[in-house]
Amino acid sequence: MATNSIKLNNGVDMPALGLGVFQSAPDETSAAVEAAIATGYRHIDTAAAYGNEKEVGEGIRRSGVARDEIFIETKIWISDYGYDEALHGFEKSAGKLGVEQIDLLLLHQPLPTAFDRTLEAYRALEMLLNDGRVRAIGISNFMPEHMERFLEAAKVMPAVNQIEVHPYFQQSELQALNAKHGILTQAWSPIGGITFYGDGKRSTLEDPVILDIAGTHGKSAAQVMLRWHLQEGRSAIPKSTKATRIAENFDLFDFQLLDEQMAAIRALDTGKRSGPEPESITLENYGMAIPET
């Protein structure tokens, strides 16, 4: 039976299941975080670019749970890449969150059009790790073509690579590359929420294979998908602002998917990305000033 704990490559223990707050409106975020912690979550994932770090901090404080029991993860946005810029990005995030130490700090995108700035930003993360200002560092949305050059320059192996992973887009090659280097794959959009809308996209929540498995276990499609991630050894950060859905997404530890059910879900991979291509994330298209604390 999978547990809600993963040991990162530097020995830090991280809850495998966390609450994501991407696109959570600031006025809903604090309540969602508070509800998640009351449910049992001890891992919250946010980012400077989400614009809700302050509200995440408020929700954590309102929960009444001690700071050292909560694993806080956030990300430096591309506008704050560069060595000094990333150090300041950390200060902005820590100030908004109301903490002195961040548990896991990631670079949000590879920024291949200004990769030297990416490498300098990661050097800043290495310094923050060395100084004890962060407990672990990592990357997000780095593809195989970015990893080779990045790993040649990195002095500290990233603990995490947070990428789009769900039954319809599994990135098996990239997951294998992460595993080869001892980097944990963390799934954003873990139940395929990004596939639910527009352009004729179909919902994983309505997939007959997943629904059949869910019926067998008396669970929801979302619970089956999240259980699949945990049994494959990934971290997952489902997003919701509804207390009932937040609680449902955490109710994963009383059932086990069979090997053939795991294989059936793996067979759903379409190889088609639903989120933006990492190559398209440039300063020209996505650069934005991250506000001061």
Rank of each mutant, 00 (worst) to 15 (best):
D207V: 07
E85M: 15
P190A: 08
D207L: 07
S189H: 05
G275H: 11
H88Y: 15
D84W: 03
G51W: 08
K180C: 01
F250E: 08
S24Q: 03
N4H: 10
K219Y: 10
L107W: 13
A38Q: 10
M147T: 11
T113N: 13
A136D: 05
E277M: 10
Y41P: 01
H166C: 05
Q23G: 05
F253A: 03
N10K: 15
T46R: 00
P167W: 08
E100K: 15
E85H: 13
T3W: 10
A214Y: 11
I183S: 02
A243Y: 09
K272E: 14
L257H: 06
E164F: 08
A267C: 10
F71P: 00
S24V: 11
A31H: 04
R135I: 06
G182V: 07
A176D: 14
M225Y: 01
P144V: 09
H43K: 07
N285I: 06
I237S: 02
L174P: 01
I163L: 04
E148C: 00
I265R: 00
N4M: 01
P110C: 15
Q162A: 08
R61P: 02
P144S: 12
I194P: 00
Q162T: 10
K92V: 04
K92H: 08
H43E: 12
R135Q: 14
M1P: 08
P144N: 12
R67N: 13
A114E: 14
I194S: 13
V209G: 00
R117H: 12
T39S: 11
S24R: 02
S274M: 11
R266A: 13
A154T: 06
G200M: 05
I213P: 00
A153K: 14
E164V: 04
A176S: 15
Y168H: 15
Y81N: 05
E126A: 00
